[in-house]
């Protein structure tokens, strides 16, 4: 028997879209350069040839118009997948995302649901500087009415889209730019995933890491280093940033009694702050140590590689934070 073929995160994203287009004639992909160019990150390469320009729609550089058009089309019976090149550009469509997609179901008294998926690239690490590199998914997770997904693994990249399209709510999917080239073997035992639960990617008894997206892999590396020092860390991959799977986080923290949150967003008003506060509200007396977090430096992301790396959470900062927590004063 030959070894299972390796694939990439990018390919998993593409196959997810392809499968969705095949499964449901209401599904179409719309966004800047998704067709002829093949997608800014080459996710949709080849789909135009396979599905044609009606279902793989190149749009003008009009984020607000085509995101809003996705909302209108979802209301009127379609299942659009809207691609926004990068999270910073999504701010041009924030009016539509917040004032319409997240709002109309509730404001209309439940008359309209908006079964829409918006995908976008997020995060730093590719020296794209301050207008292409931020991690604003935690910011979107502030908004009631949205579901926020952050697939980190190949399986999630491949299988989260299907339940997102079945969901009657607007779902934003954040694909981290440094993950597109990630290679691996898709677990053959997995053929579907949920979009509700956080996943424990590494079990451990001494400290809980809560993280998501590309930070998952930095955190797993840190956990391996700690294991060599006799510290067994549990690593939770949030997967779903809104609604948060509090139960998984709290159960883990109650076991390990310590928690470090690793979040590529800026610290002030961050998702890390929200998670920390929920733990404080509900498990304060079960903690053996203060809550800690590793976030991005509160600066616009610089271009120069060394500055960018200094701004992002990295393995050394994660290790330093957890060591200070476990051996205070050492």
């Amino acid at each position: 028997m030959s070894a299972p073929p390796t694939t990439t995160y990018r390919e998993c994203c593409k196959q997810a879209i392809r499968a969705a287009l095949i499964a449901d004639p209401r599904v179409f992909l719309m966004g800047e350069d998704v067709g002829r160019y093949g997608g800014c990150y080459a996710v949709s390469k080849g789909l135009l040839d396979e599905f044609g320009p009606e279902r793989i729609r190149d749009t003008p550089l009009s984020e607000s118009a085509f995101v809003g058009a996705g909302i209108g089309a979802a209301i009127a019976g379609m299942r659009p997948i809207v691609e926004i090149m990068t999270v910073n550009f999504s701010l041009l469509a924030l009016d539509q995302i917040l004032n319409n997609a997240a709002t109309i179901p509730h404001m209309s008294g439940g008359q309209f649901a908006i079964p829409l998926v918006i995908r976008m690239a997020t995060g730093g690490g590719r020296q794209l500087a301050a207008q292409h590199s931020h991690s604003l998914e935690g910011w979107y997770a502030h908004i009631p009415g949205l579901k926020i997904l952050a697939p980190a693994t190949l399986e999630d990249a491949r299988y989260m889209l299907a339940p997102a399209l079945l969901d009657p709510n607007p779902v934003l999917v954040f694909e981290h730019v440094v993950l597109y080239n990630m290679e691996g073997v898709l677990d053959p035992k997995v053929s579907s995933v949920d979009i509700e639960k956080a996943a424990i990617r590494r079990a451990g008894r001494d400290v809980t890491f809560v993280t998501y997206g590309a930070s998952l892999f930095k955190t797993l590396e840190a956990a391996e280093v700690l294991a060599r020092e006799g510290i067994e860390a549990e690593v939770i991959d949030l997967r779903v940033l809104r609604p948060l799977d509090e139960a998984t986080i709290l159960a883990s923290v109650r076991r390990t009694r310590r928690c470090v949150i690793v979040d590529e967003g800026w610290r002030s008003g961050s998702l890390a702050a929200e998670i920390g506060m929920r733990i404080a509200e509900q498990a304060f007396y079960e903690l053996d140590a203060p809550l800690r977090r590793v976030c991005s430096a509160e600066v616009p992301m610089p271009y120069a590689g060394h500055l960018e790396q200094a701004a992002l959470p990295n393995r050394e900062r994660i290790l330093a934070t957890v060591r200070a927590l476990l051996r205070p004063g050492s």
Binding site: I71, G77, Q96
Partner: peptide, 25 residues
């Protein structure tokens, strides 16, 4: 009747979308 939109201009993209859906279907 799709709003009642209180963001000036915010209804236009919705209209493009409902029209797109009708045309595609």
């Amino acid at each position: 009747f799709l709003g009642g939109n209180a963001i000036v201009g915010g209804g236009l993209p919705l209209a493009v979308g409902t029209a797109l859906a009708d045309k595609m279907a």
